[in-house]
Structures are given as structure tokens and as C-alpha cells.
């Protein structure tokens, strides 16, 4: 780790101005990802601006029926929040399935969204990686790819986004509130993260110096029965091979609306719009659920070493939807 300056920011505007003005400055939130990267030599900033004290860290109801989550809110606090647990259980479940207790106590909402891929080639600075060193190539092809993408990847990068929380937020149509040098703006959660294309070094649409200050969830009554499921190699503290966040609005035996996102399969939380479209107006039988999942995964392109992922993703999606439908029926 190389020396860097540390500054605790007093207000958001000042923090943004400081970081935006210095290409070698970075924001420091909970540090659970950034500090690892400092040690591994993945990033080498001159200045860390600590924003944990200035960011809001609570959940507040909004007049339009939605809620606003402060970007400084710790993952464990957010998971335990009564309002979130009652109205958006998928978010609470996703948070609790991520990392370990100690990490959740430190990690923030904003930082969780901006955590970087766990691709082992990204983390090994001796290897070529287009995300870490643009143009150097991608070492993942032909390598250890169990955790790599099957949807929306490019020849330049097959990394996945590691967050569980972000998958739930994507399904819930969250909005990210961003403070930039020219004021506040709002970015749809589904638009925040990018597909790799030919610029995998850019994880999100944010500009250098942009600071996430809050995340807003819309009023979504049927999300009160939502669910997050995650397939991984051990029962806790492991990244997703595949995960699914889903909410289903079911009435009179017909699916009116569905919100679905997949984790562990793409460079961003993968909003499953095709599956949602298939399900809208459908009667939830095993066949229709499976058809929806297969429609979503029709474009899946596994690489050597993760050929199993389309099957596992389909099964997980079907199982999650089936769970929700059963829950609705027996309610």
C-alpha cells in the first residue's frame, strides 16, 4: 500500500468538489472493498475523502409513498429496518445474504453499489485485465470462470457485479440520487451500472467526483411479498454463482406485474425484462414460469467453465417465482 492523504469531508458539496478536482482522489465509505484494493495494488489514490460522517444514514418515507435510504446507511442497519423488512423484504434478504456480519456492519449503501467485481483476474495485478488496465486484455477467458458472466458480456470483459443488494434494488426500480459538481441528479438503478462493451474499466455511468447520497424506492405494494434467493458454495459469506430477486403481483390467478433481477450473471444487476414481459398476464403454471425464465436466458452465452450457469439461473428463477406464487396462493 502506498501513502495517501486522508481527509474527512464536512459536507457533500465540498467532498464532491475535492474529489472532482483531483483525478487521484477517491471517496472512502465503509472501506470494505476499497481497503482490500489498496492492499492488492488495484488502486493507488493520493487522497481518500471520507464521506461516512456526512451522508444520511436512515430510512425515511417519502410523500409519494416511496422511501429514501441514506447512502451512508450501513448494510446491517438497512437489512434490519422495520419499514424495509415489511415493504421490501427482498432488499433485506439480499443484504443479509451478502458478505459477513462484520462486513455488513461496516459497508454502506452507496459503497455497496460501487463495489467492484470479484473477478480473480481483476484482483491479481500481475494478470492482464481490461477493467484494471484498459487494453491489456482479458485473462478470464479459458480460466477460472465459475463466477463470470453469461449475459451482456463482451470480448473485452466477462466479469460480474458482485453485489446482492444491487440486484434487489434493480428489481425494485430504485432510483439513485447523485451529487455532482453541477448539483443533484437522479439515475435509474437499472441505468447506473454499465455493460462492459469496449470500456469495461467503467463500471457505472457516474463521473469522477459523483457522490451517491441516497437511494429511493418507489411505492410498490406487491413488493411486500418479494424474495431473494442466492446459490453459492457455502451457507454464508460467499459470492453468488447465481441469484434472483423477484416480486410478483398476482390476482385472480393471473400475474399482473413482475419485477425480476438476476445476480452473478452479468456485468450489472441483470433486470429480467423479457421474463417480466412473458409473465405479465400469464397464469403461473410450472410451464409459464419456465418459459419466462428460458425467454430471459435465451441470449445467455456461457464460456468454458460456466456452462452450467444458464441451467442454474433458470432453475433459481423458476424456484423463486414458484415460491412467491405459492406464498400468494396460501396467503
Amino acid at each position: 500500500m502506498n501513502p495517501f492523504d486522508y481527509r474527512r469531508a464536512e459536507d457533500a458539496a465540498g467532498a464532491v468538489a475535492t474529489v472532482a478536482a483531483d483525478p487521484r482522489a477517491m471517496f472512502l465509505g465503509g472501506g470494505t472493498n476499497l481497503v482490500d484494493h489498496l492492499k492488492l495494488g488495484i488502486v493507488d489514490p493520493d487522497l481518500l475523502v471520507d464521506v461516512t460522517r456526512l451522508l444520511p444514514d436512515g430510512v425515511e418515507p417519502l410523500p409519494d409513498g416511496g422511501v429514501r435510504i441514506g447512502a451512508g446507511m450501513r448494510n446491517s442497519d438497512l437489512a434490519a429496518d422495520p419499514l424495509i423488512r415489511r415493504r421490501y423484504p427482498v432488499l433485506s434478504q439480499a443484504l443479509l445474504s451478502g458478505a459477513s456480519g462484520q462486513l455488513r456492519n461496516a459497508a454502506t449503501t452507496g459503497g455497496n453499489l460501487l463495489q467492484r467485481t470479484r473477478c480473480v483476474y481483476f484482483q491479481d495485478v500481475t494478470m492482464a485485465c481490461n477493467k484494471r488496465r484498459p487494453g491489456s486484455g482479458c485473462s478470464a477467458f479459458g480460466g477460472y470462470t465459475r463466477y463470470h458472466a453469461i449475459l451482456g458480456a463482451s470480448e473485452h470483459c466477462i466479469a460480474t457485479h458482485p453485489s446482492d443488494m444491487a440486484v434487489a434494488l434493480s428489481a425494485l426500480d430504485a432510483t439513485v440520487v447523485v451529487q455532482g459538481t453541477d448539483g443533484e441528479r437522479r439515475v435509474a438503478m437499472t441505468e447506473l451500472h454499465r455493460l462492459p462493451g469496449d470500456a469495461p474499466e467503467r463500471d457505472t455511468v457516474l463521473r469522477h467526483g459523483d457522490l451517491i447520497t441516497a437511494v429511493e424506492l418507489p411505492d410498490l405494494p406487491f413488493a411486500a411479498r418479494s424474495r431473494y434467493r442466492k446459490v453459492r458454495d457455502r451457507a454464508s459469506y460467499a459470492f453468488a454463482l447465481v441469484s434472483v430477486a423477484a416480486a410478483v403481483d398476482l390476482s385472480d390467478g393471473v400475474i399482473r406485474e413482475a419485477r425480476i433481477a438476476l445476480g452473478g450473471v452479468a456485468h450489472k444487476p441483470w433486470r429480467a425484462t423479457r421474463a417480466e414481459a412473458e409473465l405479465r398476464g400469464a397464469r403461473p403454471t410450472e410451464e409459464t414460469l419456465r418459459a419466462a425464465a428460458e425467454a430471459e436466458l435465451a441470449e445467455a452465452r456461457p464460456v468454458e467453465g460456466n456452462e452450467f450457469k444458464p441451467t442454474l439461473a433458470r432453475n433459481t428463477l423458476v424456484a423463486t417465482l414458484r415460491d412467491l406464487v405459492e406464498e400468494e396462493r396460501t396467503r
Binding site: L96, S97, A235
Partner: peptide
């Protein structure tokens, strides 16, 4: 749920 395959956050209800 802790006794189900996959641990707390990704369990079945016991069917299947």
C-alpha cells in the same frame, strides 16, 4: 431456515 440447504437467505420451504 438455518437447517435448510443453502442457509438462511436462499432456502426452499422444504419441498423439493
Amino acid at each position: 431456515p438455518r437447517t435448510l440447504p443453502g442457509g438462511v437467505a436462499n432456502t426452499s420451504h422444504g419441498e423439493g
